[in-house]
Amino acid sequence: MDWPVSVALAQAVQTLPVGADLHYEIKLDGHRLVLWRTAETVRLQTRSGREVTSAWMDLALTGMQLPAGVVLDGEAVVYVNGRVDFGAAQSRANSTPARARELAARHPAHYGVFDVLQHPEHGDVRGWSYVRRRALLEHLLEEYGIGPPIQAVPTTTDVVLARVWYEALQPQGVEGLVVKAGSSTYRGGSRQWKKVRHAETVDAAVVGYTGPAGRPRHLAVRLPDGRVALSQALKSPLSAQVAPLLEGAGPGRQARTGGGERYRAVDVDVWVEVLAGTTRHAVVTVTRLR
């Protein structure tokens, strides 16, 4: 398997799918990471393929307990006061190595694993069914005595229990459920899974901005249907949060949305949540960074 791997994605739906051969996993509110246990070390990859090992060094060190040749897919989360805190995970992801060490000392990261892509004995297992991969994942963690902060996310085939999770775990920072067919293989780049979230939002990639990089006024985002649109005016906290990421991307280039609005295009690995109801319009509402 070649670095970086293309990850499978989920399509947002408004109601929980019900049917035979469906498996329900809790959806943690963190940062998607692929963990590579190589012969000498551990590397961590974002869903876009960027290496971020230095920001999550505590997870990388824990991952050394795994056998060489393992590749896992999961979510890095940070707990604050017993609750999954997305803001804390975002701060870690966007910090310098020195700052990341300070944050890790206060709030160590956890890694919720939901898939195994490669195994030292079986090689690339993305062509296996979800049921076989899940069994292999659980056996792997048990065989090597792997426990928190690395652990498999809960899963069930009981839709009643899944609904209980959906409602009862929200106060703990669980943002919803991911639904997967038991017979499905792992297809990178495809939105083969379904996700149900409490907030009616969709994920959008940041492709540019207006105003100065140090204080952006609007974000240009690529929506799930491929359209590029400008966000509404950013509130000061969100503008300040995204500014360092834009400043590090260089000067960018002039571009226009499909509607003709000008913006400065940049290549950054930044995703935001956008209110689903606003994506039909030329200007969308960004709720937070992902």
Rank of each mutant, 00 (worst) to 15 (best):
A135F: 04
A55G: 10
V42Q: 07
Q90E: 13
L72A: 07
V34P: 11
E25I: 02
R99H: 08
N81M: 11
S129K: 02
G74S: 05
P67V: 05
E121A: 14
R47K: 13
R126D: 08
P108I: 03
S54D: 10
A39M: 09
G123F: 07
L59K: 07
T15C: 01
M57V: 12
R47P: 05
G63I: 05
L44Q: 05
R37Q: 02
Y130M: 09
A100G: 05
R99C: 00
A89Y: 07
L16C: 09
E40P: 01
H122T: 15
Q118H: 15
A20W: 03
R99E: 07
H31V: 15
L22A: 07
G112E: 04
R37L: 01
L44Y: 05
H110R: 15
A104W: 06
H119V: 11
V84S: 01
A109I: 06
V71Y: 03
H119D: 15
G49W: 10
S54N: 06
L136Y: 00
A55P: 00
V125T: 09
R47Q: 08
M57D: 14
R83K: 13
G82D: 03
L137K: 06
P108V: 01
V71S: 02
A39H: 10
S54C: 08
V78I: 13
R134P: 07
D58R: 04
L61K: 10
H110S: 14
P67M: 04
G30K: 07
W56G: 03
R132E: 15
V34Q: 15
I26T: 12
V71T: 12
L59V: 10
P17I: 11
G82V: 09
Y79L: 12
W56S: 03
T96G: 00
A76I: 11
A68P: 12
P17E: 08
P108F: 02
Q118W: 14
R32M: 03
G87V: 06
E25L: 09
P67L: 02
V71K: 06
S48Y: 05
A93I: 02
E75K: 00
A135S: 09
A89G: 14
E25P: 06
P97D: 01
W128H: 13
V78W: 04
E75G: 00
S95A: 15
A100F: 04
E51N: 06
A60R: 08
A93R: 15
L33W: 00
G69C: 12
G127Y: 06
R37E: 01
N81T: 12
L35S: 07
A60Q: 10
G127I: 02
H122L: 15
G19W: 02
I26M: 09
A104I: 13
Q118T: 15
A93F: 13
G82P: 06
T15K: 08
G74I: 01
G74A: 05
P97C: 04
R126M: 11
N94W: 09
D21E: 09
V70F: 03
H122W: 14
E51H: 06
A98E: 11
W56A: 04
S48D: 12
V42F: 06
H107M: 03
V80D: 06
T53L: 08
N94S: 15
G87R: 11
G49L: 13
V78N: 00
W36T: 03
L117A: 12
V71A: 03
G19T: 02
D85T: 07
